[in-house]
């Protein structure tokens, strides 16, 4: 395999792992617990910025970019800091929005929060370098390992895969347990869950924070790979790419989240990023204006969501209720009807 091909494949693989992590976190919130978090991408972004600024060196007056907290922290501290920062932010946002607000208001507040976060990061240039964003974020252990770029990239892919596997196991630990069952009950009818003694505010807050930490870590793994991060990378529609992945893959199904991430953000968006900008069609030379492919991609994402909500709202891999009850329960399944 050529080096270029290997670069391409390893890049795609790393993107896949990162997207799987992100989709798993949102699926836990949306699919399992029924929390509408239209600001999910903000928690990814906060993790990415946190990892970026703590691993960059201290800012100095003549620097080409300006930011807070430059600390040159070594691996793996930036990732831990990213998870912690997103978790704390989730706690604050959750305490404000999840406790008292009606759920439709919550949804609106989250969407507005997403837009406001972009505005703030863009305008407050001293915080994370404004619209230009941060660049030259150090890659973890790059100097210490001393590997050639391609080999380093494969090592990074393995590292990202490891974190993704851990995330998967952690999320599955929740979904395949009495906790997961209680969360799904809360999603189906929160008043009835409360009437059975479940503290729904605490449960929502818990899952909001857990999902936020996962989002933050996925952002950190992403920024340490591409080494740059700017407001353009996390506009609010990005949350809907994740939502589309969940709707396509299957809400409240962890394997569905994996497949959704493979199909929507990776298969659908990354793959088309390499379409030619000019080509011959029936003998005519066609030049696409820059941004056309992006625009059509978004149209396609929108259509994909509509098509799935219409024809297969349960997704490719539907939720499987009752699957962790003991064997005897499954054995008696045939008795029904």
């Amino acid at each position: 395999m050529s080096d270029a091909m290997q670069f391409y494949l390893s890049t795609l693989l790393i993107y896949l792992f990162i997207d799987v992590m992100g989709v798993l976190g949102l699926n836990l919130q949306f699919g399992v617990a029924g929390i509408i978090n239209f600001a999910y991408i903000v928690f990814v972004a906060v993790g990415a910025y946190t990892a970026a600024v703590v691993s960059l060196g201290p800012d100095f007056p003549g620097n080409f970019q300006h930011y807070l907290f430059g600390a040159s922290w070594p691996f793996p501290l930036p990732i831990l800091a990213a998870g912690a920062a997103s978790g704390v932010l989730s706690l604050v946002v959750g305490l404000i929005s999840l406790r008292r607000l009606r759920s439709d208001y919550q949804a609106m507040v989250m969407l507005v929060l997403s837009l406001i976060a972009t505005l703030t990061a863009t305008n407050a240039t001293g915080l994370v370098n404004g619209p230009a964003g941060l660049a030259n974020v150090p890659q973890p252990l790059f100097d210490q390992l001393g590997l050639p770029p391609l080999e380093y990239q494969w090592v990074y892919a393995i590292w990202a895969g490891l974190l993704t596997a851990l995330t998967f196991l952690f999320v599955r630990g929740i979904t395949n347990s009495p906790l997961g069952r209680t969360l799904r009950a809360m999603r189906d009818n929160d008043r009835a869950a409360a009437a059975l003694g479940k503290n729904i505010t605490a449960l929502r807050l818990l899952i909001f924070v857990v999902g936020g930490v996962i989002a933050g870590i996925s952002g950190a793994v992403f920024v340490e790979f591409i080494q740059a991060w700017s407001p353009g990378s996390w506009l609010y529609p990005e949350t809907f790419v994740f939502l589309a992945a969940i709707i396509v893959g299957g809400s409240a199904n962890n394997w569905g989240a994996v497949v959704g991430a493979l199909l929507v953000p990776v298969g659908f968006l990354e793959a088309t990023r390499f379409l030619p900008q000019d080509f011959n069609l029936f003998g005519r030379h066609v030049v696409l204006f820059s941004g056309l492919v992006d625009a059509l991609q978004w149209v396609a994402v929108g259509l994909l969501i509509l098509v799935f909500l219409w024809f297969r709202p349960q997704g490719l891999f539907p939720e499987r209720p009752g699957r962790f009850t003991p064997r005897a329960a499954i054995a008696s399944a045939g008795k029904g009807e």
């Binding site: 952690f170 929740i174 906790l179 069952r181 799904r184 009818n189 003694g197 209720p321 009850t325 329960a329």
Partner: peptide, 26 residues
Amino acid sequence: FARLTVLENLLVAAPAQRGESLWGAE
């Protein structure tokens, strides 16, 4: 709880389950 089975509906209701906390579940 419409998307839970009948058995699950009953199990949810049981108070103080060990696997209902985050670490208990994990």
